[in-house]
């Protein structure tokens, strides 16, 4: 028998009560797909687990005129089948459908993925590209909301205090011109940890790219916006030449992100494959695909 306790709040109010008693040995348990491995590998036999999956409110995906609101304990399986998300947050749906296996997607949650802050996480670049906001509940029952990028500090590090819990992720509903895409590269075609991933959102008006966001993951300790890449294609007309600029700028971005890593040699080349995947996924219908390699 371990010296572990599990608390099973059924409502936000009960969760607040649990958070009030949080200490350094308190772990928020959501889908469990990362935490349970950690408890075992790190030989953690003492402490308190707070199970978030019993709170119905946290498992809903709702929307209003401005936001799609994803409960922190909604699973990736729920995300991939949600029609609102398919319409307004394609890159998140694409990323979610490529996370782990069927079994993992049935358990793992968006809130858990954010809190875990893994550098190679697939959902996080998509959320950054979508300007997602994260709502956090404090033990005094108040909440605050921050952009996703500000929650994640680095590899396996987030800004949450012990007595706080992510409860909701809000994705602004952009206009109908907004498009998005996600692509990843791992060691297998499926069930694989990203060596590289990329999420992009853009608005296209009369063949011109506007308001573009390009986010790279699995390069360094946290996903980041590739500003120079965005600059290279923003307010430009979609064309093959632009694709080349996009690709080359991405290579530069990889060079800058991981100058001393042994994986640089591969990643700076392979990013071209992802560049093609994402560019043509986004703008494919607007550009003739004739790129050759011979």
């Amino acid at each position: 028998m371990s010296n572990m306790i599990m608390k099973t709040p059924a409502s936000i109010d009960e969760l607040v009560m649990c958070l009030k008693q949080s200490d350094d040995n308190t772990y928020l348990l959501s889908g469990g797909t990362d935490l349970i491995i950690k408890l075992r590998n790190s030989k953690i036999y003492e402490g308190t687990l707070i199970d978030l999956t019993g709170i119905d409110d946290l498992k809903q995906i709702k929307y209003n005129a401005e936001y799609i609101k994803i409960g922190a304990a909604a699973t990736f399986n729920q995300i991939t089948s949600n029609t609102m998300l398919i319409k307004h947050a394609k890159c998140l749906v694409q990323a979610s459908s490529q996370i782990g296996s069927t079994q993992i997607r049935n358990a793992a949650t968006l809130g858990g993925n954010i809190a875990n802050a893994f550098a190679g996480a697939d959902a996080i670049p998509a959320l950054i590209a979508l300007d997602a906001m994260v709502t956090i509940l404090k033990s005094d029952k108040t909440t605050y909301t921050k952009p996703i990028d500000e929650i994640i500090k680095g590899s396996r590090k987030n800004t949450l205090y012990k007595d706080e819990a992510i409860i909701e992720i809000s994705i602004p509903i952009a206009n109908d011109n907004c498009i998005s895409a996600f692509a990843k590269l791992g060691s297998r075609s499926r069930v694989t940890i990203s060596k590289l991933n990329i999420a992009a959102t853009a608005q296209v008006k009369d063949g011109t790219i506007e308001a573009v966001k390009i986010v790279l993951g699995a390069l360094g300790t946290k996903a980041f916006r590739a500003l120079s890449v965005e600059k290279a294609i923003e307010n430009k007309d979609i064309s093959e030449a632009l694709y080349t600029a996009f690709e080359n700028e991405l290579v530069k971005q990889v060079d800058e992100a991981i100058p001393n890593r042994s994986s640089l040699g591969y990643k700076r080349e392979a990013i071209r494959g992802l560049a093609e995947d994402v560019y043509f996924d986004l703008f494919g219908s607007m550009v003739r695909k004739v790129k050759c390699h011979d």
Partner: peptide, 13 residues
């Protein structure tokens, strides 16, 4: 109704 890894779910969940 959903396939899940029973090694990655706490019993009490």
């Amino acid at each position: 109704g959903l396939a899940v890894n029973s090694c990655l779910v706490m019993a009490h969940q």
